[in-house]
Design a protein around this nucleic acid. Structure first.
Lengths: 219, 219
DNA sequence: GAAAAATTTTAGGCAAATCTAAAAATGTTT
DNA sequence: AAACATTTTTAGATTTGCCTAAAATTTTTC
C-alpha cells in the first residue's frame, strides 16, 4: 500500500498529539499542528481510516491503529537519526536541524535507515535528548536521572522509581506522586540533602534516600 | 519562486536529453524518460516556460534557460554527492544507490549540500566516476579514455563507467571491479577486440562492448 | 433542559499533475 | 504537392490535497 508524504505527516501528527497512551485525538488539534483547516483534516481522516491506519469515528476523534503506529514510529526514527547525523557528522547546531530532518525523514529505504543508524553507532537519543526508537519500534529507557541530582528551582517530570519495595511504593503513593506528574524543586537542605518540592499545589519534604529512588527527567 | 519536485524532475530530464550543448529536446523524449504521456509533458512545458525555466515553442521543442540549467545542475550535484555518501560512508554498492539518491536529491538546503560536500572531502567524481559539478555549477574535467583504447601490457586505473544501467553496473560489480582499482591489459584478441585483463590477481576477459564503457587513466 | 457556543462534518470548488481521445501541425514518401 | 505517418497539442476527465461556507453534532452555559 502506497502512503503519500502528506499521509505520513498526518500519522506523525496524530502520534505526537495522542502520546504513547494512544488517546483519542481531536480533529482541530491535528488541523492546528499541520497548519491546515479542520475540513481538510476530516477528508484525510476518512482516507486513513479506509486504509486502516487509524481508528476514526465521526465527531468522536481518531487514534492510530497498530499499523499506523508502526509507520509513525518508523518516521520518527528516521527523523531523529537524520538529526543526529546532521549534528554529529555535519556539524549543524541542534536548533537548525529540525527543518532539514522533516524532509529527510520521508526518504524511503529501510536499508538506508539501518545503515545510517549503524554509521552513527546506533544512537539511543537524538541531539535534543529525545529517544530514538529501535528497528522494532521500541523506545530506549530514559536517562538514569534521579531526583537527588536535580538542583533547586528545576521543574521535573516523574519517570519512575528505582526501588519497587512495598514500603517505598506505598510511601510514594501516600504522597500522591504518580508517573508523569510534574514537580518543582524548591530547596535543597544543605544539612541532610533533603529536598523541598512542590507537587500539585502542595509542598512537602523528601529525604535524600527517597529522592535517589525517583527517576525524573528535566523539563 | 517555488519549484515542485515534479518540476525538478522535468528540468533534470531536459538537461540529460539535451546534453551540455543545450540542444532542442523533443516532447516525446521527455515523456519516455519520465515514463509519462506526451500530453502531460506539454502541460508542464507550458508551465516551465511561463516560469522562465525553459525556452519552449509549440511543435518546435524545448531547452533549459540559464536559470533552468542552474537549477538542473544543482540537483545533479546533490544527486552525485548523496551517491558518494551512500557508497563511501554507508557502504552501499554503487549499483544500489541511484534510487535512493533520486529521493535525497530533492532535499532543499543549500547549507546541507555544502556541508555534505565538505564532509565527503569535496569529491570531484561520484562512485560511478561521473563528474560532480561544484558550488558554481562547473564540472571537473575528465580524461575521456576508455578501456578499449588501451594497449596490451598497459597498467590502468578504473575511473568510472560510461553506461550506468543496472545491468552494466551489476555486471561490473560481479566481476569485483570498483572505482580506483588497478588493472593490467594482458592481451587484446584480434578477432573480436575482447580484452584479457588481470585484476587483483585474477584474469578474466571483457568484451569490446564492456571495455568501451569503462573509463580509465593510464598509469 | 433548552439555548448558545464550540467542534466537526458535508457540500461544492480549485489547482496540480496525470490520463485518453481527438485535432492540429509537421515530416516523409512517392 | 498530395497522401500518409508521426509528433505534438488541445479538450475534457480524474485524483489528491486543499479551501470556504453551511449544516450537523456535541459540549457548555444559564
Amino acid at each position: 500500500m502506497e502512503i503519500s508524504l502528506t499521509e505520513e505527516n498526518y500519522l506523525k501528527a496524530i502520534f505526537f498529539i495522542s502520546g504513547m497512551e494512544g488517546n483519542l485525538v481531536n480533529t482541530n488539534a491535528i488541523a492546528e499542528r499541520l497548519d491546515t483547516k479542520a475540513a481538510t483534516v476530516t477528508d484525510m481522516l476518512r482516507k486513513l481510516k479506509q486504509k486502516e491506519l487509524i481508528h476514526y469515528q465521526p465527531y468522536k476523534g481518531s487514534r492510530l491503529s497498530e499499523e499506523g503506529q508502526v509507520l509513525a514510529i518508523r518516521i520518527l526514527r528516521k527523523h531523529r537519526l537524520w538529526e543526529t547525523f546532521l549534528v554529529d557528522k555535519l556539524g549543524f547546531g541542534w536548533e537548525e536541524v529540525h527543518e532539514i530532518a522533516e524532509q529527510l525523514e520521508h526518504v524511503r529505504s529501510q536499508k538506508l535507515t539501518e545503515r545510517l543508524s549503524q554509521y552513527l553507532g546506533n544512537p539511543q537519543f537524538d541531539p535534543h535528548g529525545d529517544p530514538i526508537p529501535d528497528e522494532r519500534g521500541i523506545f530506549p529507557m530514559r536517562e538514569n536521572l534521579t531526583l537527588d541530582k536535580a538542583s533547586a528551582g528545576e521543574q521535573v517530570l516523574v519517570k519512575g522509581v528505582k526501588d519497587s519495595s512495598p514500603d517505598f511504593l506505598s510511601y510514594v503513593a501516600k504522597l500522591g506522586i504518580r508517573l508523569g506528574d510534574e514537580m518543582k524543586v524548591i530547596h535543597i537542605e544543605p544539612f541532610d540533602s533533603s529536598v523541598l518540592v512542590s507537587h500539585q499545589g502542595e509542598e512537602f519534604r523528601l529525604s535524600a534516600m527517597a529522592c535517589s529512588n525517583i527517576y525524573i527527567s528535566r523539563l
